[in-house]
């Protein structure tokens, strides 16, 4: 088999592995943590703490 054909199969394989990793980790995370924790991020946290908008 030619090198480039092997590379094609390797690319398919690695893509599938990376995809599987992401999906598996995603499902694991979603079942381990509660939805409230995961979506607790709010905009403007740092500003509220450090910025004093006065001149």
């Amino acid at each position: 088999m030619e090198t480039w054909q092997m590379l094609e199969y390797a690319a398919w394989g690695v893509s599938a592995l990376l995809g599987l990793f992401m999906v598996a980790d995603w499902l694991k995370t979603d079942t381990t943590y509660s939805e409230d924790v995961l979506t607790s991020s709010r905009e403007g946290e740092l500003e509220a703490m450090t910025e004093e908008h006065k001149i």
Binding site: D36, S41, A48
Partner: peptide, 12 residues
Amino acid sequence: FGPHGTVVGLLR
């Protein structure tokens, strides 16, 4: 952690 209740936020 943040004042509005962020438990996990993006990392600075």
